[in-house]
Amino acid sequence: MTTPVIECRNLQKWYSGVHALKNVNLTIHPGETVGLVGDNGAGKSTLIKILSGVHHQDSGEVLIEGRKVDLRSPKDAMRHGLETIYQYNSMVPTMSIARNLFIGREPLKWSVFGFGLMDQKRMRAESVQAIADVDLHLRSPDALVGELSGGQRQGVAIARAMHFKSKVLILDEPTNHLSVKETDKVIGFVRGLKAQGLTGIFISHNMQHVFQSCDRIVAMARGEIVFDKPTAATSIDEVHALL
């Protein structure tokens, strides 16, 4: 058996008296695409926020590729190869695609204490490549993200995660507020993760979307994992009955 890419052990989290995560154990292997489902307040978001470094667990531990890690900020999570794409989209609409792709990770020609001149030529060239890699066809790396459709934006976000060689892509309800056609595009991206050798965690309210794109379904309720089966061995009705 290969080393799991993510392993959560006895994760617990309280929010001012509310027990949001109760002893959550979850193991995810490289190349898996896991669908994480559950009602509002089931603990999905809390679990994802811990994995993406936004919140820190009150107890328990997170292991990445067998090593214990301490994720204190989004930057920590990215450094360990965990990249999160949020439902509201993690792109800045008033900035170009090239600038968006490198927010916080700009290639620098020279720098003093981490501040310096950006290598804009390289940013443009690499963003053209990164976008082409996810089969997205855009006009120019200088186009503003605000001019793209919702689906294209999620595509650019996925291109960004791939460009930085993320190991795990966490997609937090990426299909919310998207049209049917755009949703199909995003589901296509999720399906494509496996071919690129990436592990995916796809959070969604929509069972159809999860069943179409994931090979394992994990369901949460009241802060616990209540269901965990390969997609092939279950059905939408079975998961629905549980929630």
Partner: peptide
């Protein structure tokens, strides 16, 4: 327009949550 800090200023004002989620 030329430095990474300028990029962070624009990102922070353009969409605060997105900038924060990218570790700015």
């Amino acid at each position: 327009s030329l430095t990474n800090f300028g990029n962070w200023i624009r990102a922070t004002g353009g969409f605060n949550e997105a900038a924060a989620s990218m570790g700015i």
